[in-house]
């Protein structure tokens, strides 16, 4: 049975009419055309689908659409705004942090949720936070370097 669910994505109001049990990932990719959020496993095992819902990083592959009604969803598309790039995006480009990049939007969202909390973080803390996000290409070291750069830029690095 289809329902209409209203929420915001990257600050913009959207509505999706679908089965309320549809995973948010599918709604983002197929209904809203926001495809930086990626399918990796569908079972909370890899983090490729990570988005931010009301400030918290969530696996969108298992999150029912109905659960985000009225909430603020953020995806990697939102890092490249009209007013310039978010410090995380700038740092990832500077460090060439990534190879195939399939894992990166999910990692960016997990990192953003962490840095936005405003608590001071160090490299080990960031690495621990990212343990639910896999990267098969082995770009980990650069990804951590880039996130720490962004953390410094945002004033949350210890």
């Amino acid at each position: 049975m289809a329902d209409t669910v209203a929420f915001t994505v990257n600050g913009k109001a959207v509505e999706v009419t679908a089965d309320p049990g549809l995973p948010l990932l599918s709604a983002l990719r197929e209904d809203l055309g926001l495809k930086s959020t990626r399918f990796g496993c569908g079972s909370e095992g890899c983090g490729a689908c990570t988005v931010i819902v009301d400030g918290t990083a969530r696996f969108s592959c298992t999150l029912p659409l109905a659960d985000v009604a009225g909430q603020e969803v953020r995806t990697a598309e939102g890092l490249a705004g009209p007013d310039g790039d978010h410090p995380l995006l700038t740092a990832f480009l500077d460090h060439q942090a990534g190879q195939c990049g399939y894992c990166l939007p999910g990692i960016l969202m997990r990192a953003r949720a962490l840095l936005d909390r405003g608590e001071p973080v160090d490299r080990a803390r960031v690495a621990q936070e990212l343990d639910g996000n896999l990267c098969r290409c082995g770009a980990h070291a650069r990804i951590l370097d880039a996130i720490m750069d962004a953390a410094r830029e945002m004033g949350v690095a210890t």
């Binding site: 495809k35 490249a80 480009l93 990534g98 990049g101 990166l104």
Partner: peptide, 21 residues
């Protein structure tokens, strides 16, 4: 000169065969 011209799309866009619509 280290830039990979395709990295931005891989970070915030939809460059993959999975994304074709």
């Amino acid at each position: 000169d280290t830039s990979r011209h395709d990295l931005r799309a891989r970070l915030t866009g939809a460059p993959f065969v999975h994304d074709l619509s």
